[in-house]
Computed example of a mutant assay.
Amino acid sequence: MKEYGGYFELENFRGNEYHRQAIRLNSARNSIVYLMRAKKINKLYIPYFLCNSVKNILIKHNLIFEEYHIDKNLRPILENKLKNNEYVLIVNYFDQLQDIEIQEFKGAYNNVIVDNTQSFFRKELQGIDSFNSCRKFFGVPDGSYLYTDSVLTENLERDKSYERMIHLLGRFEVDASSFHSFFSKNDAKISDIPLKKMSKLTKNLLSGIDYDFAFEQRMNNFNLFFHAFEKENVLNLTPGKFCYPLYIENGEYIRKKLIEKKIYVPILWPNIQYSEGASELEKSFAKDIVNLPCDHRYDENDVKFIIEEVKRCIN
């Protein structure tokens, strides 16, 4: 029964989502689960250079997988010819893959799934399955947009996200360090939530974002970092909008010094450094890529401050 009157709930935002035509799910991991079921995937090729959560969810669902390596340009090294119902997960690291490259992978392997968790603004490419992660780009508790022409016939329950909001509200009104433990707990919860539709709360929050501003600010900030570290960075980069990945000797030391100054530059996948199968290059990526924040929370002065601190560490 509908309720009337009483106290107000969170305001209902009237803006538009960026991915209005996509399937709305509750997490990027569950976008993989959706595709596994909808496409009846027998085997999935995944990169070694990836967080354990993807591997864990494949094990949980009894899916056969095989790992492959990436090269110095973060592109897959995969020579296997895929059989029917075998797919390859290609990760768009740091928003660096161009559409033409993705289409070439489609031509080479046919059964391709693109992991755009680091490329929120990448929209659908015709005939290619892809998904992203909302919380990697914006202050929302969960959520993923999936592009696919395979429809799962199951009647999915809608998720609820209100219990995953405390770290977002805490950082908004206090600071990040005081609520980092809640952020970590939320990460753990996301790993275990079953496949569901995106929550009403997450969808509503995503309807209140100025996407044009976020896109432009991220691009501008990335370009400031790009010009500042073009000579130092070993990676050959094109403009991106996730973070600025500075791959540099003694990156691990630089990261520690920046964190001491409350410039939080996480290791995206710390498990890689201890992986038996990962190559030395992949372990070096994990250890020495310094992921500098270029998102829309920061303006030119903020970025210049970070650049100065990094150069001080280098020198």
Rank of each mutant, 00 (worst) to 15 (best):
N84Q: 09
N132F: 12
E173I: 15
T117Q: 13
K160M: 04
E157M: 11
D192Q: 15
Y48Q: 07
S178K: 13
F105R: 07
R158N: 04
D115I: 05
I90K: 01
N132Q: 11
Y93L: 05
S150G: 08
V174I: 13
L89T: 01
E79S: 03
S191E: 15
I100G: 00
E154I: 05
S130W: 04
V54R: 00
K72N: 09
L146Y: 05
L156W: 13
K185F: 14
K106A: 10
L63D: 00
K72A: 08
H61K: 01
I70E: 02
Q103D: 01
L89K: 04
F179L: 14
P47K: 06
I100T: 10
V151T: 15
L78S: 03
S130R: 12
L78Q: 05
E104R: 14
I64S: 11
D71R: 07
D95E: 07
V114Y: 00
F94W: 02
L168G: 04
N186D: 09
K83L: 05
D159Y: 14
N92L: 00
I166S: 14
F131E: 08
Y162F: 15
I128T: 13
T117W: 04
K106Q: 15
D142Y: 09
Q98A: 05
V140D: 04
D149A: 09
K136P: 03
L50H: 01
I64C: 04
M165G: 07
L169E: 03
Y68S: 03
E173Y: 14
F65R: 02
K160E: 13
